[in-house]
Design a protein around this nucleic acid. Structure first.
Lengths: 261, 261
DNA sequence: ACAAAAGTGTTAAACGTACACCCATGA
DNA sequence: TCATGGGTGTACGTTTAACACTTTTGT
């Protein structure tokens, strides 16, 4: 049983990989802003209709080890708080962001991850709504990055981000986490855009609509979004406010063909 | 950053959920043993052809908290070893079993999980070949259970086992972990039996064969298994010895329709 | 009226499933 | 030669995926 093993000297930390949609231009602003704004938005984009990508905040390390490098937000686990609470707390303390979705990702604990000390890091991943990213701390030591273009981070954080990206892309196919990127009501075009940005490929609007509708994942609110230059789209809301479960294991398949690649 | 947080008092433990196929009767023994053995095997079984089920070893707790109750094998993390090494070590120390497959499952760390102390438990799950279960320690404080019929375990271990079972069943559909239950070469009937036992439903032999063959997950060795009373089946081996990856994230889909339920 | 996005319909190919059938062996 | 599991063929319903088409609005 090794009951005599002495774990003193092992410290427990918590880090979080946060994903958001790049704020870009909201549909209202997009059209309200006129051609100038629209063109500016278009000119920055490559793949998606509004040129948005994923975004994630990183914090600059202010002390050794890894001083000066960018790293995932995190901190030490308090003896009294749960792991998830620690993730939420350290996330807010360092970046000002409150996640709409928070799930444990993996625990990294190799000896030698961090010099001198033995650190076991429980890593969470989070999704935040674009609105909430505006609460983010305005600090030169917090900066938002495209997660596909982050390299040279402190510790093993490059690996962790890659792993989290894979999990996000995979999980879109059998869960309803896409809603965590959106406001309480949304159009199917907005939902489809989330999938297109995350999966990095275009989806057929007609087939996407049928897949989502037949999955029962969303409900028609009966309202329309007005102010668009074209036919006003219906507004939908998620059936389930969130899908929690221990480790987020609740599976509500949306559409088989929305799996990655 | 909360760099002043003092994690002293938090101990890190490692536990493992081990799955094996109930040894039951091997194909050779089954037929060699004649009708008596065959009937005995059949009489105990419900769903599967040989009546085998999943099996997992638990250890009896010898001290408080939870003294006398059955629990997952585990122990404390040594300051010098990796999490995975700790899982393998404590597994062997307590049960004598060496896993063919070992993957991190989840980290449980709620305050109050264990009275008095704050314990963060990194839980792994493992698959072992039936041959290796014979190395298991013969000890009244180690006993094998049907994972669907374990209740009243120490701590939150009931929850953990349920979660691990879900992960096993799900992962069968997009990974090659089924091989970890089998010997280096196997017939497709044996592989199918693994799926049937784990998924708890019968599979069409013809369609299963085509699905597995077209997936490229197995290779025909060119040899046949002899000694059966009927047509000798081909022997196959896995293409990949194992699929590791950080957190076992390597996805090699076998067959879409082999997903659970 | 026109442009453009919202939303519906239609079709062919791919896939999942069931099950009939032949093959090879020990008894 | 018979019984039985190994292995192949095939036909049918369902799902996926591509794209033509209709609807609705602001300009």
């Amino acid at each position: 049983m090794n009951a005599g093993g002495d774990p003193r000297g092992i410290r427990v930390a918590v880090s979080t990989v946060i994903f958001a949609l790049e704020p870009g231009v909201s549909p209202e602003e997009f059209w309200a802003g006129g051609l100038d704004t629209a063109l500016r938005a278009y000119s920055t984009g490559e793949s998606s209709s509004l040129g948005r990508t994923l975004w994630m905040p990183l914090v600059r390390r202010l002390r050794e080890p890894g001083e000066g490098r960018w790293a995932l937000p995190g901190g030490w686990l308090d003896p009294e708080e749960s792991l998830e609470a620690a993730a939420a707390r350290t996330l807010e303390e360092t970046t000002g962001v409150r996640p709409a979705y928070l799930e444990q990702l993996f625990t990294f604990g190799d000896p030698g991850r961090s010099p001198d000390e033995r650190v076991v890091s429980v890593v969470y991943w989070a999704l935040v709504r674009p609105e909430e990213t505006s609460d983010a701390i305005d600090d030169p030591n917090v900066r938002w990055f495209d997660p596909d273009r982050t390299r040279g981070l402190a510790f093993d954080h490059d690996t962790i981000i890659e792993y989290a990206l894979g999990r996000l892309r995979t999980k879109l196919g059998y869960s309803q986490i896409a809603h965590a990127f959106l406001e309480p009501t949304f159009t199917l075009a907005e939902l489809r855009e989330v999938y297109e940005i995350v999966l990095q490929r275009p989806l057929d609007p007609a087939n996407f609509r049928r897949a989502v509708e037949s999955s029962g994942a969303v409900v028609d609110t009966g309202e329309l979004r007005t102010g668009t230059p074209h036919r006003p789209p219906k507004l939908y809301r998620p059936v389930h406010p969130a899908d929690a479960g221990p480790g987020g294991f609740v599976r509500v398949p949306i559409a088989p063909h929305l799996r990655r690649s």
